[in-house]
């Protein structure tokens, strides 16, 4: 298989399949969670659960002051890598062209030089996250092989995208093919590791916030 064939497969049938697994897998995970159900709170409430749920979905985006002061680097780095991923994935011109071709939706994009710089910063941020994970005693204890797999799965598309855009290391077509393959891999694996947090955080915040809102307590 040459580079062109690999690229055609990766962005064609490969991507189709990966997207199918991603969507079906995430729906399965959602079903696995929701089908367990939860018991109604029979205690007399003080407020509205739904308002509390929505409030916590928003409010938990900001850290508590006392925890932020203890771990500013870990928290700021967390924001940085999430915002960096967002910019790199959704505000890069060729990606938007790709989305438009696939889903018919498009939106304004940032200059490619800016996305390139953000990608470099995000790669650095992911590296910092890895170094923290491997050196902080708490993170080392609670980390599983899944955490490192998820890290690799996230790092590879970003790295290959950066290399392809800058024509580094391999001929462009090869690197682009590898880039899209790594995206395919990420899509296939995401529903089966902690990357499910991309949707599950909404449920988790909702459930805690719902109970807190109903009971009239902090969340």
């Amino acid at each position: 298989m040459n580079a062109d064939e690999l690229l055609i497969w990766a962005r064609g049938p490969g991507f189709d399949l990966a997207l199918l697994v991603f969507v079906a897998g995430m729906l399965l995970r959602l079903f696995e969670i929701l089908s367990l159900g939860r018991k109604r709170d029979l205690a007399e409430g003080r407020g509205c659960g739904a308002v509390g749920g929505l409030r916590t979905i928003l409010s938990r985006t900001l850290p508590r002051r006392s925890v932020f002061l203890k771990e500013p680097l870990r928290i700021l780095n967390g924001y940085l890598l999430h915002m960096g991923l967002f910019v790199a994935i959704f505000l890069f011109g060729p990606h938007i062209d790709f989305f438009k071709a696939w889903f018919g939706l498009s939106w304004p994009y940032l200059p490619s030089g800016m996305v390139d710089a953000v990608t470099a910063v995000t790669l650095l941020s992911l590296t910092v996250a890895l170094v923290l994970r491997m050196n902080n005693p708490v993170l080392r204890l609670i980390s599983t092989s899944g955490d490192y797999v998820a890290w690799v799965l996230t790092f590879l598309p970003l790295l290959t995208g950066y290399l392809a855009h800058n024509h580094l290391l391999l001929p462009y077509t090869w690197m682009l093919a590898l880039h899209i393959l790594s995206v395919d891999l990420l899509l296939v694996a995401a529903p089966f590791n902690k990357l499910t947090h991309m949707f599950a955080f909404l449920l988790a915040r909702w459930y805690q916030g719902y109970q807190a809102g109903y009971r009239g307590i902090a969340s």
Binding site: L36, V67, R74, I75, G78, N136, D147, A200, L203
Partner: peptide, 18 residues
């Protein structure tokens, strides 16, 4: 003890250690 909230909590945990 495992209900939908518990399943969502484990599905959402990123092992950040905060």
């Amino acid at each position: 003890q495992i209900d939908a909230p518990v399943a969502s909590f484990f599905s959402a945990c990123v092992h950040c250690g905060l």
